[in-house]
Nucleic acid binder design. Structure first.
Length: 317
DNA sequence: GGTAGACCTGGACGC
DNA sequence: GCGTCCAGGTCTACC
């Protein structure tokens, strides 16, 4: 029997706008349903996986109405709320968003500011690795297969499950290619207790930890280079660095009018967004998202199977 | 510190 | 339908 509960949101929060604010809303196990503007995913709860769906029937600022596909206990409900809170950045104060709008007034009217991410730091790291050196449709495919092949009942695999999976299995059944061993090694880092050298998630998520310290630590992990490290940092809510990639070059060339080699254009893009300081990534990303939406319509009308898979570099030029 | 080439997969293209 | 080329970020070896 389904359970129903509510999730409180900040006054400025809009589910269609804020859930569909970053590409991860298109990656399994996340599922955005444009038809009824619902956001669902299978989550790993202490009693086992459960599919939870949220909608915001009363509009921006009003609570999310959540439904699970099985009865969940009160502790599981709190677990699910914590996961959606992280994913939708519901704990980011409205003042922080207002501060971003003071720095970059272009997004104030639309209210854009929160960026969708995963319910766990681990999932954000693995999703970032699956987005490296590959076209977006392949990233979609890898995440679908990781959930279906390794995850329990379609949930994203836990570090423990992924750490026990053979690299060959990931390569053959999840199409992750040469990323296979790197993904297993990352999972092992997360599955190892902190006192035995494992990842101290609390340290990464502690606002008092310095950006430079996190950046240096991330660069030491397998499969994490400058792009991935900067992307993971924005997922941690640290927006000062830009994950510069081929999309940055395209954006610099076609929309900002920069000229030169790819490396020169990346430097110009970096310099262009530096004045936005601690909010640089948000300014950069919402410009790119605006471009995508000019080609594909509002992101809350996209779905994974059709619009999602149409995102390839060649088609975005 | 900078650079070249390998690493995989899947889409695009030519035949 | 098949073969070839190319895009994509990280890693390693080398200068």
């Amino acid at each position: 029997m389904p359970s129903r509960f509510f999730i409180l949101v900040p006054a400025d929060f809009s589910l269609p706008r804020d859930a569909c604010s970053y590409g991860y809303f298109l990656l399994a196990p996340n599922h955005w349903q444009p038809r009824d503007q619902s956001f669902s995913r299978v989550v790993n709860l202490q009693g086992g996986p459960a599919k939870v769906t949220v909608v915001q029937p009363d509009g921006p600022g009003k609570p999310l109405k959540a439904t699970s596909d099985r009865t969940i206990s009160k502790p599981e409900r709190l677990q699910a709320i914590a996961m959606f809170t992280r994913m939708l950045r519901l704990d980011e104060p409205s003042e922080t968003i207002a501060d971003f709008h003071r720095v970059d007034r272009r997004w104030k009217k639309a209210g854009a500011g929160r960026l969708c991410r995963s319910p766990s730091f681990f999932e954000d790291v693995i999703k970032t690795v699956t987005s490296c050196n590959v076209a977006w449709p392949s990233t979609i495919r890898m995440n679908e297969r990781l959930c279906n092949v390794v995850g329990l009942a379609g949930a994203f695999p836990t570090p423990q499950r992924l750490a026990r999976t053979r690299a060959n299995t990931l390569r053959a059944r999840c199409s992750v290619g040469y990323r296979d061993q790197r993904i297993v090694d990352l999972a092992k880092l997360f599955a190892t207790p902190v006192n035995r050298g494992g990842v101290d998630v609390a340290w990464f998520e502690d606002p008092s930890t310095l950006d430079d310290a996190i950046h240096e630590k991330l660069l030491g992990w397998p499969g994490i280079g400058p792009y991935a490290a900067a992307n993971i940092m924005q997922l941690l809510g640290r927006y000062a660095r830009l994950p510069l990639d081929s999309e940055s070059v395209r954006h610099g060339k076609t929309l900002l009018g920069f000229k030169g080699s790819d490396a020169q254009i990346m430097k110009q893009v970096k310099a262009h967004f530096e004045p936005f300081g601690a909010h640089a990534f948000r300014s950069y990303w919402f410009e790119i998202l605006k471009h995508y939406q000019s080609l594909k319509g509002s992101s809350h009308t996209w779905d994974r199977a059709t619009t999602g898979k149409s995102f390839t570099a060649a088609k975005m030029k």
